[in-house]
Amino acid sequence: MTDITHSLLYLSGVEVSFDGFRALNGLSLDIRHGEMRAIIGPNGAGKTTMMDVITGKTRPDDGEVLFDRTNDLTKLDEAAIANLGIGRKFQKPTVFEMHTVEDNLLLALRGNRRVVHNLFWRRNAPDEGRIDQILGTIRLGDHRARAAGALSHGQKQWLEIGMLIAQDPKLLLVDEPVAGMTDAETETTADLLREIARDHSVIVVEHDMDFVRRLGVRVTVLHEGSVLAEGSLDQVSANERVIEVYLGR
C-alpha cells in the first residue's frame, strides 16, 4: 500500500453520505510535506465535502483520515484540527466584518487559543511585527484600521489568505480562491499562493483552469466522490474519462 511515512495528509476509503446521497465514495488522497496540490472536479464531485471531512466539520461514515501520520482527524473537532495546523479558506470569503483588518489578523495569529490567556492578553511587539509583515504580504497595509466588511471582494479574499498565513498552519485548504476576481486580482492571488507554498503544504480547490495552469502543480480530479485521475494538468487534461465528465468534448 501507500507509503505514508512522508505523508502530511493521508485519506483512505473515505465515505460520506447525506440522506442516501453519497457525497464521498471511497476517496483516497495523499499529500506530501511541502506539496501544493490542485483539486478539480465538476459540481457535486465532493470537493467541499472533502474539505469538511479534513477540517472536522463533517464526520465520515467510514475511512481513514490521518494528519502527520499520527493524528486521526475523524476523532477531532474543528478547533482541535485547526490547532494541529490545518487552515481553511472558505469558498465565500468569510472574514470578521465588524473587526478591523488588523484585528482579523490578530485573531488568526498563531498562539494560545485559551480563554484565560486571551482575557489577559496585551498588545506586544512580536505580534505587531508579525501583523505588519503579513499586511505587507497581502497588500493591505493601507487598510489596517478599516473594518473588514468595508473591503472589496478581492481584498476580503486576500485578507482571508492573510489570516491563513497568520495561522501558520502546516497545511492550507483553499477553496476557490479566485472565484469572482478580476484578472489582475487572480494574478496577484496566484503569486500569493505560490509564495505561501514555499514553506507550507497547500490544497487548492479550483474551477478556473487557467489559474490551475498558472499554479503549475500536481492535479487531482474528483468525480462522484472519488478520485478519477491524478497527475500534471496536461496529463489529466488528456485523460479520456476526465474529458468526458468534466472538461467537455
Partner: peptide
C-alpha cells in the same frame, strides 16, 4: 464578536 458574527469561521481558526 468574531463568534457572534461568524461562529464556524472562528472555530476553524482554532478557538474553542
Amino acid at each position: 464578536v468574531a463568534i457572534r458574527d461568524a461562529e464556524s469561521r472562528t472555530r476553524f481558526l482554532g478557538y474553542r
